[in-house]
Design a binder for these strands. Structure first.
Length: 692
RNA sequence: GCCACCGUAGCUCAGUGGUAGAGCACACCCUUGGUAAGGGUGAGGUCACGGGUUCAAGUCCCGUUGGUGGCUCCA
């Protein structure tokens, strides 16, 4: 006699076991028709799930009662669409083995193994989609049936799919005593897939779908295992939502930093120079310069000392730090003396021998630095240090080089040479908490000034069951607490992730999303008990004994490349005035105002404003359009009227009208004030502007 | 590195085996116009690179290189 509580609090009683579908039908035919699935005590289920006890029941429809897209509905639709796609692909490519097909953010995928020699191309999408449409039109029910684990495994083995057997074995290992299948139609007759569900009631409920792209993947994510083909698709409740999704992808593309980087001439990447090596063109270099200046000023205020170190260092340095032996795969190969190479070649030394000689330290060479810390450590070690000197905070915009796999490189977010906003703090154990805290205050300030609130924070803690960590557990506890406390002060969501600490210390990471939804790690703050040990660092304590300092690595914005890449997207290329490469463009109405326009330009430049002038023969409409294309924050339009009254007519990026006339001197003063205050005061505040 | 797609003028792109195109940008001329593109003329290409098939290749095939999406990895 199940009693069912609905989301509005109302109660329905049944004399015998029922299903969400039946409850929906009781409530009304509209709901029965719209329901795609159910939430039973919060768990997403099929509409056909039998209810034989008291539960809280919610029915899943395409839209929530507030009218938003229901994420659970999308999950059901996409998961179901993955089945339909798999069936269609098997129909078009007989012999294809299925591996795993889950819904993911923005869609779904299905990993599959094509029969020998067959491969799928985007040209096949049309045929597959046609087959999918046919299956959807047939509106076949998704029918679930189960079997005891042993019998189910037997069935799968007899069918001969090693991947599905593997999936089942994993499910059983995880504690399932039953395996379930979903047939698209009649079990035993129609297509089916091992699946725990849930699904929409029938194929016809998949409103709109599209196969998006192909990728390769590895079985279990292991590159030494089978290579699989991954087919990505997406599905929505209706065509309109699908269309909106595709439109959003197109819009996102417009603010992609790679597109804007070209359009606004911020940077270029030249295949002649090398993959993943960013050339900062003047506009981008100016943005970077302004940002570095901002960061540097704050670091000075916080007691950091700036240093400069070279781009290479001896191999032995990185043997000591551990970078060379442990992270060889992601380094450029070492630089070895030419004469030495000739000599070895004459002795018949092979490449393998050479690698061994380097690994064993028999020959030395130089490494393009993969990290800045060893250099900074040697600066610390260059003098005897007293406890009174600590903390010592050495900062550098330090350029490092890493060998990333070619398929990974892209734009400014993943590159092979990049400049970190790096610093290393050397402190006493009792100073760790305060120093970690200090590292975060700059993050707050800079993210705050830039209006970047959309980031998340991960606190990486040690895995309590592992012994791989170096350092004293009591110190670890304190350092972990310091990281937690510091993260809490940021006022953004943070997660604690046990097991995610480095072996040498706990850390705090900052993660942001780019315009196409990919997550990127920006900065990090890491406590390190390992390197001071490896380099035998010490200071003299108040007790006149030698002590080991603790190191903190911190690069809160990660790299200038990645950070500015993300920043370009954050502002959609429209930088605030203080960061913009070109802050003001002077636009004379005609040649008659050329002299006055030149005077305006000269005054702006004298005030330190990055201003240009457009003396072209175009009409003012064209000049405004061209300046808007470059997203110049302020336009100073000057014509005979302005010259007469010694004013400029102001127009601001993003405001589609002439804001009005401002006396020339006021204009210069206010733009300068805006620049110098990094946007704390704005010229725009002078006008009544419509809210953006 | 793996899979798929792509690389044509400075930029964005059209061109599906038969004499390389458009818009914007650029140069010159006309226009001197008050807030998101006035008009004309012109210059600009080893169709990423290397090989092959063909009477004929931007177009088809192979290789290389670079880009994009994804996988994997990430101090």
């Amino acid at each position: 006699m199940p009693k069912i509580t609905l989301p509005d609090g109302s109660l329905r009683s049944y004399d015998e076991p029922t299903t969400p579908a039946a409850v929906a039908a009781d409530i009304g035919p509209g709901l029965a028709k719209a329901a795609l699935g159910a939430r039973i005590d919060g768990t997403l289920c099929d509409l056909a799930t039998v209810i034989n006890e008291d539960v809280e029941l919610g029915l899943v429809t395409a839209k929530t009662r507030e009218g938003d897209v229901d994420e659970d509905a999308l999950f059901l639709i996409r998961h179901s669409c993955a089945h339909v796609m798999a069936e269609a692909i098997q129909a078009v490519f007989p012999g294809t083995e299925l591996v795993y097909g889950p819904p993911v953010e923005n869609g779904f995928y299905y990993d599959m193994a094509f029969p020998d020699g067959r491969s799928i191309s985007t040209e096949d999408f049309e045929a597959i989609e046609a087959e999918m449409k046919r299956i959807i039109k047939e509106d076949r029910p998704f029918c679930r049936y189960g079997m005891p684990a042993g019998d189910g495994l037997e069935k799968l083995r007899s069918e001969g799919s090693k991947y599905k057997v593997d999936n089942a074995e994993r499910a059983i290992e995880a504690g399932s005593d039953e395996l379930t299948w979903y047939a698209t139609g009649e079990p035993g007759k129609d297509w089916e897939d091992l699946c725990r569900g849930p699904h929409v009631p029938s194929t016809g409920r998949i409103g709109a779908f599209k196969i998006m792209t192909l990728a390769s993947s590895y079985w279990h994510g292991d590159e030494n295992s089978d290579r699989l083909t991954r087919v990505y698709g997406t599905a929505f409740a209706d065509k309109k939502q699908l269309k909106q999704h595709i439109h959003r992808l197109e819009e996102a593309r417009k603010r992609d930093h790679r597109v804007l980087g070209k359009q606004l001439k911020l940077f270029t990447i030249d295949e002649m120079v090398g993959q993943g090596l960013v050339l900062w063109t003047p506009n981008g270099a100016m943005v970077r310069h302004q940002l570095q200046e901002f960061i540097s000023e704050e670091l000075t205020r916080q007691g950091y000392n700036q240093v400069f170190t070279p781009h290479i260092g001896k191999l032995d340095l990185y043997r000591t730090s551990g970078h060379f032996p442990y992270y060889q795969d992601s380094q450029y190969t070492p630089i070895i003396d030419r004469a030495k190479l000739h000599e070895l070649a004459e002795e018949g030394c092979s490449c393998g021998d050479l690698a061994n000689l380097m690994n064993e330290g028999e020959i030395d060479g130089y490494l393009l630095k993969p990290m800045n810390c060893p250099h900074h450590i040697r600066i610390f070690a260059s003098e005897q240090r007293s406890y009174r000197d600590l903390p010592i905070r050495l900062s550098e915009f330090g350029t490092v080089y890493r060998w990333e796999q070619s398929g990974e490189i892209g734009g400014m977010t993943r590159v092979r040479g990049f400049t970190q906003d790096d610093a290393h703090l050397f402190c006493r154990e009792d100073q760790v908490a305060e120093e970690v805290q200090g590292c975060l205050s700059i993050v707050k300030l800079i993210f705050g000034t830039l209006g970047m609130e959309d980031y998340r924070v991960r606190v990486g803690l040690r895995d309590p069951d592992s012994s791989k960590y170096v350092g004293d557990p009591a110190n670890w506890d304190r350092a972990e607490q310091a990281c937690r406390d510091a993260a809490a002060t940021l006022g953004v969501p943070f997660t604690e992730e046990p097991g995610e600490a480095a072996f040498y210390g706990p850390k705090i990471d900052f993660v942001v999303r780019d315009v196409i939804g990919r997550e990127w790690q920006l900065g990090t703050v890491q406590v390190d008990y390992n390197l001071p040990e490896r380099f035998d660092l010490e200071y003299i304590g108040a007790d006149n004994q030698r002590h080991r300092p603790v190191m903190i690595h911190r690069a809160p914005f990660g790299s200038m490349e990645r950070f500015i890449g993300v920043l370009i997207e954050h502002f959609a290329g429209a930088f605030p005035c203080w960061l913009a490469p070109e802050q003001v463009r002077v636009l004379p109405i005609s040649e008659k105002s050329a002299d006055y326009a030149d005077e305006v330009l000269a005054k702006l430049k004298a005030g330190g404003v990055r201003a240009t002038i457009d003396h072209g023969a175009d009409r003012i409409q064209a000049k405004v359009k061209v300046a808007a294309d470059m997203k110049v924050p302020y336009l100073a339009v000057v014509g005979p009227r302005d010259a007469e009254s010694r004013m400029v007519s102001v127009r601001a990026f993003g405001v589609d009208r002439n804001l009005g006339e401002v006396p020339l001197d006021d204009f210069v003063t206010e733009v300068t004030a805006e620049m110098n205050s990094r946007g704390a005061t704005r010229l725009l505040d002078r006008f009544e502007t419509p809210s953006e």
